[in-house]
């Protein structure tokens, strides 16, 4: 169904879809690992779909910005979402579990890969998860997690804290993943 929506021009969607299911593509990660995936799952990534359509795939698709571990995760996601029998409810549940165990670093890798490969559903899911993790955390926690150094002067920071004092009452302690 999802593919139908994304591909409104295709008049003979069904025979085409059948072909896609049987054809496999090979994705190659930045560290040289190769993964086989059915075309119907791979084209859930708009970027891959474009490559396939432009016929520049030529058997192996190199993905120089995605490492093997991340690509394996992404492929798990794609396979689930291309699965025939999976109901929306099942997929939703899968999505939740898929992101819930990930550490912040992994989430960042996955969100970057999803962004690069243009996988809308995954992108949305991971963004939501990242935002969830940031809820109720201190500024210091966020800086540490995102590897950011403050460029505010202490005076500026003090001033801003004073201005919205209520936003810093009772945040969670930083001990978390």
């Amino acid at each position: 169904m999802a593919r139908k929506n994304r591909n409104p021009v295709g008049k003979n969607v069904d025979p085409e879809a059948q072909k896609k299911k049987t054809r496999t593509l090979t994705l190659k990660s930045s560290d040289g690992q190769e993964f086989s995936i059915s075309e119907s799952a791979a084209v859930l990534s708009i970027a891959i779909e474009n490559m396939v359509e432009d016929d520049c795939a030529g058997g192996v698709i190199p993905l120089p910005l995605v490492d093997g571990g991340t690509l394996a995760r992404v492929i798990t996601y794609l396979n689930k979402h291309a699965e025939d029998g999976a109901s929306d409810e099942e997929k939703r549940k899968f999505d939740e579990e898929f992101v819930s165990g990930m550490e912040m670093g992994v989430l960042f890798d996955v969100v970057l890969a999803a962004n690069y490969l243009d996988i809308r559903g995954l992108l949305r899911e991971v963004r939501r998860r990242i935002a969830d993790r940031m809820k109720n955390k201190s500024v210091e926690w966020v800086r540490k997690t995102f590897h950011i150094e403050s460029d505010f002067t202490p005076e500026e920071e003090e001033q801003m804290k004073k201005e919205f004092a209520w936003a810093w009452e009772g945040v969670d302690s930083d001990v978390d993943d």
């Binding site: 809820k135 966020v142 800086r143 995102f146 460029d151 801003m160 209520w166």
Partner: peptide, 23 residues
């Protein structure tokens, strides 16, 4: 753009907090 899409989902308080992270 990715960062933006993450931050836009924060509840107000966390949003105010995130403003303090860096310029």
């Amino acid at each position: 753009d990715v960062l933006e899409m993450c931050l836009v989902r924060l509840p107000l308080r966390s949003l105010m907090n995130a403003r303090l992270v860096c310029k």
